[in-house]
Amino acid sequence: MSELVDNPATRRIMNLASGAAFAGLGLFLIIASQQFEDAGRSTPVFIGCGLMALAVLLIVTEIAKSEFLPIPESDGGSGRRRLVFVVLMAVWILTLPYLGFLFGCSLMFILVAMAVPRSKPWTIRSIALHALSGIITTIGFWFALTYLLSVPLPVPSIF
């Protein structure tokens, strides 16, 4: 995140939308806290009020002085790859209890590797090399965590 979003209209919409969302969150905190006892309610209500006040201040500042609130631009690159990565990670996490650590992580290692942009095209050899690295890395971590650090890792439940 380095450069700033140049388009003032986009910047304004992003700041106003996020300000409204945080004001909504503050309001939700205040309403949802009403069911708690007095002692447990005071802090979330205080936080909700603070969040709302800051969000309103942000909206007012944006409307009054649009130059004041910069939004960083991302480093660029592919948004589609970012989405693929997030989806792959979600699948990785969701399937972990079923596939177990060894199989699940070895499989996802190569899938995530293939989602990374590469200057050279993928060949059978490069896929095999990455798969092998994934298996070796996963086994290394599995061995270290299970036998040296006594951390029980998820075991597969579908086999």
Partner: peptide, 20 residues
């Protein structure tokens, strides 16, 4: 380290770190 190794390695470590 090429990114094709670094990214899955970092992701794996994030998972392990959160779990362990």
């Amino acid at each position: 380290m090429p990114k094709t190794y670094l990214v899955p390695m970092v992701t794996l470590m994030l998972l392990i770190g959160a779990f362990a």
